[in-house]
Design a protein around this nucleic acid. Structure first.
Lengths: 365, 365
DNA sequence: ACAGATCATGAATCCATCT
DNA sequence: AAGATGGATTCATGATCTG
């Protein structure tokens, strides 16, 4: 009696494979994977040490695996692993990659070059990013994910209703607010140091897997690290394949995975909740043209102040925020500028708080 | 009598130039522009208009090749205009480009290939995006901007304090929440249809220009469209140069620009940081008798140091500047001596920075 | 035990000027 | 041109310490 070997039987499901991800992927059967989630090295190109204003040293990502000699070398690496990944994907499969401005443009361009079809780019907006300590750039407060199918017109999985439910009944957008991974979720080594420099939050993988896979799907992560993809896949009833070169990371991942129980959502409910009125900087009223630089504001007792282009006020040699100038004019220790200042419209005096409410109502859309 | 032609005299400031932006840029003097803001098109009719880098024509072939050749043609276009832009920038200049996932990865990769140095990628998070009607993808709720200097280590303008003020005292992040351009701000043509398909909100340009230019700077926009960059530049007291190929857009832009008024000078003044303050050597406090040689200074943790006649300190076998001695006593890599040391007056401990402020205020007289 | 203060830390391409 | 020096610069969160 003949027997057809099913592809899945050859797959090392729910294990962590050792070795270089390109070689390992090339040894797996083609067309056998539903989703690939890849968090490749970012090629950060850090040169000097950085200290916080309190003189403590920032623990930088200086690992050897993040070093490349040039963009050409990084591109060659990217080309190779993306090609190996494409071979593994089923016709209805898809890929997610994550990166920062150091590498994500090269990732995206190479995805397109290889015929992957980009479905969305998604922004992970970190609610608690590391600040810019020297005040030389914008706070690097996000990372970018790219979601792509295997080609133009290819099928792919998208669980629209599930994502809508995750988002309190509103269609899920391309920007996701999720805290960085720290606290009890952050894995530590025996010395109490972080086990991996760039562990991703489970909430991020939860949204990816709920949204773009089905239970029973095979999810492969070629840069497995400490196994966040595997842990969330296991919780959600998906099969995973991890590939990781570093033995230390594999060990941490295996220990972690052994503890994970399917449908254990404890860690995942954390990211929900906490809705408060969004903070509206006064400067936004100026940027949006609701108030103009040069326009005058009035205090309850008739004092006036001029608005500047950066959203600060000037009055009687006092400069600063709406709160600071209000406090200075009143000789008070503090002042709520939102209720203190008014502007003129059609002869009437209108509190600036009205404009804040207008912006807030737009934000809820 | 000989006369040196200043570069600025050749610049067509505050006008909208007609023509292909690459040709027009190549006709302007090198090193004459402080900032370029570019919103390049990505829905080009590539096949008949563009050439490969070697000037061979791009022909339509089968679908797969067509896909690849289209990217190649787009890359050639990107390469050409980014190179022309780089030539125009001053050594301390910078560029902003904006795009969506269709083109931004190719823009970013080519910026890096040409030696531009990416400073941040910034996400414009739209507070009121168009929903995804078919429910097949995430709501496309953002676009990406890339901010880059002309090269690694190059100087660039960043008004940190002004941006912080715009954000109510918290340093500005890389994700900006700004509504899309509609309502009163959205320009209409004679038929009442939108005059341009992708008009950018003035709030976006306001933040870009307040944050990364100074009054009087020259801002060039090679894809001027209906002139948002020019309008905001004019309001903010920056000079602009617009380039636009389509006559219809130029007409709308010129009509729009004629109506824009510049804000008054005081309103354009923006919060500046301590880096702008003149440097005061510590020795001046001794020379002027505000502190005396032999007098003792105290650190926050009670250590003491003696002032010498040349403005250096001695403490526990350490000699040197206020900064060097402070750093040595704390075992820190660096130390701001101005905020570290205090002296005694009438039994009270007074930070020496108070004396620096006194000297600075005298300098203003 | 509990509240409040203090400390530690996270994918970071993080200085300007003078000698 | 390279090296030395002055001195400016941080937000959110969880853990640990203090009273």
């Amino acid at each position: 009696m003949t027997r057809t070997t099913r592809v899945d039987e050859a797959l090392p499901l729910n294990t962590v494979l050792a070795g270089d991800c390109i070689e390992v992927m090339n040894g797996l059967p083609a067309g056998s994977v539903d989703l690939i989630f890849a968090d490749p090295p970012y090629n950060l190109q850090l040169k000097n040490q950085l200290h916080r204003p309190d003189n403590s040293r920032v623990d930088a990502v200086d690992d050897a695996w993040d070093q490349f000699s040039s963009f050409e070398a990084y591109d060659a690496f990217t080309r190779a692993w993306l090609a190996a990944a494409k071979r593994l994907l089923k016709p209805g499969g898809a890929i997610w990659v994550i990166g920062s401005y150091h590498n994500v443009f090269r990732l995206g361009a190479e995805l397109q070059n290889q015929g992957y079809w980009i479905l969305n780019d998604v922004v992970w907006r970190k609610s608690n990013p590391m600040p810019n300590f020297r005040g030389k750039r914008f706070t690097n407060a996000h990372e970018t994910l790219i979601w792509a199918s295997v080609g133009e017109g290819a099928k792919y999985t998208f669980n629209y209703e599930a994502l809508k439910a995750l988002n309190e009944g509103i269609q899920m957008r391309s920007d996701w607010v999720i805290p960085i991974c720290n606290g009890h979720e952050r894995l530590k080594d025996d010395q109490g140091d972080k086990a991996h420099p760039t562990q991703k939050p489970e909430a991020l993988l939860h949204r990816v897997l709920v949204g773009t896979t089905n239970p029973g799907d095979v999810v492969l992560d070629p840069f497995f690290g400490t196994g966040t993809t595997g842990a969330v896949a296991k919780m959600l009833g998906r099969d995973f394949i991890g590939i990781e070169r570093e033995e230390a990371y594999r060990k941490v991942a295996e220990k972690r995975l052994a503890k994970v129980r399917r449908f254990d959502r404890e860690a995942l409910t954390v990211s929900a909740g906490k809705r408060q009125e969004p903070r509206v900087p006064f400067g936004q009223l100026v940027e949006r043209g609701l108030l103009s630089p040069g326009e005058m504001l009035q205090s309850p007792r008739g004092k006036i102040a001029k608005i500047r282009a950066d959203g600060t006020l000037v009055s009687e040699n006092v400069k600063g925020s709406i709160h600071q100038v209000g406090a200075a004019l009143e000789g008070a220790p503090s002042c709520n500028g939102w209720t203190y200042w008014s502007f003129k419209r059609e002869g009437k005096s209108v509190p600036i708080d009205v404009l804040r409410q207008q912006i807030r109502s737009e934000m809820h859309d």
